[in-house]
Nucleic acid binder design. Structure first.
Lengths: 254, 254
DNA sequence: CGCCCTTCTCAGCCCGCTCATAGAAAGTTC
DNA sequence: GAACTTTCTATGAGCGGGCTGAGAAGGGCG
């Protein structure tokens, strides 16, 4: 499996979304363990963009020492590592009494057997290739459920105007009315809502909402924007606006 | 300031489920006694995920000292231990005047009369291999019956919309009508109800509802969902919904 | 010991989702 | 207003996830 040539992240300078924080106000600390540079680069960029403090480790041994020293709030751990298996890293950490929640990365086909039992301890997994929005959402979910946050931005519920989205139930409502979305539509809307009142470009959307190995054209974004409009804005004052030549913006009707 | 006519989506904010607590609000204290690391690992993870405070002991001697020092609300005790027999651990504890309820773990074939007599003393047993839902349900039952909880989440009765489930009588009703379920169907429904209004993945279901040694495919879940739908949703507004690519959710019909 | 209920696998079908294409529509520049 | 660019959306193809019927295997209970 090869990864997209150069993950050129189209980021705006500085985010201003409500950010997850630790109880003492300091940034979330994350460790990313993977032997593919392109992937760790991509992830560290994305997580730092979330305002988190990130450390990297290329293999299981380094992972163990980095985790012991850095004491992260969350760990992103590839199952397939050059030295010790990611599942063994989990076991050694737990044997030490370390309870840090872990998000496993795994290839799509190797899922069923080896991942068994992972979700009971509050850990989770994501199959490669994934979208950054999905990964970050899962991480925030894990942190939320680990109960280590006080912050109200750690809510599974997002509201923009009369538009509501719940990440636990996957429910979306406009003015109280339940709206049925597909997985991709849901992720796109979540991204727009998390960036409400800010223009996001099609490239940014593609980088965040679609998998990093997506090979198609950016016109899918237009198509999905169109789907969303039909479902979200239908017959109502529009919340999704086109900024021609720049991108899209979602904002409450004033 | 506008008022939303819509019912708030707010689910049980942070915690995964309403959690059992001691009268003073502190977490349930449990001791797990077993000499197999993989099993104690699994159990401690699962119980900690329930929000409980867990201590481990690998044999009978350690069990006695840990119990005396930690004063747990509940003990999970394997019958087969390297040193002293689990039943003797029971006797010694009771000789000390310790009345902590005990859940015994036993191999399926070794269920003799001695163990059958346990339930009269207020204790209980579960045969290996078991599902975590069953084990935790039994533990909650023991705690409930030991009368040490005040909490209303310690009820044996679960209601979601017009769907009712009673863990003591194993009765399930939809709109008052009694519905007959098999053991697996019952456990799956209990899991869905305990996680009502939240999407759970097939993997999560498999990890919780099926035995830890289940080696099959996650497509069994689809089949049991289909069975449940036939019995629960038959001819009625559906409560079980598929979230394609994510999992299943049970919620009241609005 | 034999029957029946339950559990689980397999395989085929169906349907929803994703995405490309292309022409229409809207906006921009001169 | 004409020419060009950008965005919108209808249509449909391909694919993959999910549903379900049929049946084998297993276990409980008489």
């Amino acid at each position: 499996m090869s990864i997209h040539p150069a993950p050129s992240l189209h980021t705006t300078a500085n985010a201003s979304q409500p950010r997850l924080r630790r109880p003492d106000g300091s940034p979330i600390r994350a460790v990313v363990v993977d032997d593919e540079d392109s992937l760790t680069d991509l992830l560290s960029m994305a997580l730092r963009y979330e305002g988190w403090d990130v450390r990297l480790a290329p293999d299981g041994q380094k992972a163990l020492s980095v985790v012991r020293e850095f004491r992260p709030d969350i760990i992103v751990l590839d199952i397939m590592l050059p030295d010790i298996d990611g599942l063994q890293v989990l076991q050694r950490l737990r044997a030490d009494g370390n309870q840090t929640p872990i998000l496993f990365l795994t290839a799509k086909d190797s899922v069923d057997d080896r991942i068994a039992g992972l979700t009971v301890g509050g850990d989770d997994y994501v199959t490669k290739p994934f979208s950054l929005e999905e990964l970050v959402a899962r991480l925030r979910g894990l942190i939320r459920r680990s109960g280590m946050t006080v912050d109200d931005s750690a809510d599974s519920h997002i509201e923009v105007g009369d538009l509501e989205l719940d990440e636990d139930s996957y429910e979306v409502r406009r003015d109280g009315e339940l709206i049925d979305l597909t997985a991709t539509e849901f992720e796109l809307l979540r991204y727009l809502m998390r960036n409400a009142r800010r223009v996001v470009s099609k490239m940014q959307i593609l980088d965040r909402v679609w998998s990093y190995d997506f090979g198609g054209k950016s016109s899918v974004v237009e198509i999905y924007i169109s789907y969303l409009r039909k479902k979200i804005d239908a017959g109502r004052p529009p919340m999704i606006h086109t900024v021609r030549g720049v991108g899209y913006i979602l904002k409450p009707t004033r």
